[in-house]
């Protein structure tokens, strides 16, 4: 099915375009907008963006694959991104990762069967003073995490999910 922006996102897209002297510069914000609407960047969206910005689909694809924050496949409603760089490692991020793996029953880059959680490790999130740190989707960081806080957090997320459909930025 062909990809189209919703009316609201079309307006937002035009606002984004107006901020740059060259259309191509709007590529990163446009990809975020697509992801916000669709959860991930599907093949149709790649062609759609290329046409809108006057570039080739391969140029869009090349950018998506260079950066870590764009998804070519659907991810869970809650994308758990655990920092495993030096400061977080020094303060126990590996224990948290092991705990997440066993509690969720999935490995890295995998999604739980109910579509709720995707698990990833990420490089330094820039919050080393409050290590270990976890980011869920693009939300504010969860900081100074221990196993107990992590368990509470997972319960909270599960409860908040309700019957809402999967897929987020």
């Amino acid at each position: 099915m062909a990809f189209e922006f919703t009316a609201e996102n079309q307006t937002e897209f035009e606002r984004i375009l107006s901020r740059y002297p060259q259309k191509r510069a709007a590529l990163l914000p446009t990809l975020y907008l697509v992801q916000k609407q669709h959860g991930y960047v599907c093949k149709d969206a790649i062609g759609f963006i290329a046409e809108k910005l006057g570039i080739e689909p391969v140029q869009v694809y090349a950018v998506i694959t260079f950066y870590t924050m764009f998804n070519l496949k659907p991810v869970g409603r809650f994308h758990l991104q655990l920092c495993n760089n030096i400061s977080c490692m020094l303060l126990g991020s590996e224990k948290l990762l092991a705990h997440l793996r066993s509690r969720l029953g999935i490995g890295l880059k995998e999604t739980t069967p109910d579509g709720l959680f995707t698990l990833s490790t990420v490089e330094c999130l820039g919050s080393c003073g409050t290590a270990p740190v976890l980011q869920i989707n693009c939300d504010p960081y969860r900081e100074n995490l221990g196993i107990e806080e992590l368990d509470r957090l997972l319960d909270e997320l599960r409860a908040s999910a309700g019957d809402a459909p999967a897929a987020q930025e």
Binding site: N85, I86, S87, E123, C124, G126, C128
Partner: peptide, 10 residues
């Protein structure tokens, strides 16, 4: 700000 160990600009 992405240099591991740095969180000042934030």
């Amino acid at each position: 700000e992405s240099e591991p160990g740095t969180f000042k600009d934030r």
